[in-house]
Design a protein around this nucleic acid. Sequence first.
DNA 1: CTTTACCTTCCACTAAACTGGAAGGTAAGG
DNA 2: CCTTACCTTCCAGTTTAGTGGAAGGTAAAG
Lengths: 129, 129
Amino acid sequence: MRIGETAAAAGMTTKTLRFYEDRGLLPATDRAPNGYRDYPHETVSRLEFIRRGRTAGLTLAQIGEILAVRDIGHAPCIHVKDLLAKQLHDLDARIAELTALRATVAEFHEAAAAGDPAACDPERICSYL
Amino acid sequence: MRIGETAAAAGMTTKTLRFYEDRGLLPATDRAPNGYRDYPHETVSRLEFIRRGRTAGLTLAQIGEILAVRDIGHAPCIHVKDLLAKQLHDLDARIAELTALRATVAEFHEAAAAGDPAACDPERICSYL
DNA sequence: CTTTACCTTCCACTAAACTGGAAGGTAAGG
DNA sequence: CCTTACCTTCCAGTTTAGTGGAAGGTAAAG
């Protein structure tokens, strides 16, 4: 698989893949005789994992740590375990924060929904925008 | 309340408060006769709200939109309602993404925890670090 | 009266995560 | 052979969210 096809499959640009390779999130892959990168199909799921992490708000550095653990595959040494425990803890904190925020925003939304929509002129833009 | 005290109460720096004022997240407040900013106590909770949003991964622009709605207080026009509905939707997507990621990381963690910790030499740093 | 700890503005810099563009190689179609 | 659509490297620019530091004002304590 060439870079363009791989990037498209993951919904990214070729620029982004080269950038991820540079940052160590994507291992330097084989090259075709002409120098073109040749990716195995698994790269797509790896990229999808990265994207999920990004969407969730993790930094590339954090995602890189998780991927490094995944790449070792075996060797469950205490450092690996601690690292993952920390990531889990961070994720839990993040989820709790988001859930609290959602509740706050839901309150605002209900208050807004309770008002009379007819009172708003669709031709006019809200005063604060 | 002067800027230093306000910032400390919210666990931020004075630099950050001035920056938030510049970005419109913090309204320009009263000044003492000597030119010093004088914040009302509510500013602390506003700052805490901003920090929660940031921790949750929202951008300052998104937080600013929510705060703008809060500042209007009344006037539940359709634009406001739509904006909040969109924010809620984004938050839900984010929470779902994070929860899925947490499950993946938990799997890695359990696999690591299942290994024999004695196999790891505490004197040696993991090969991937 | 000077030191200390605040505060003011302004401008430049950083880090993260890309994104754009230049300059050039390659392989297939017309 | 030429155009087109890929690919290569390298370097520079962008956005977001601050941070650092200069140059200077202010108020209280020693």
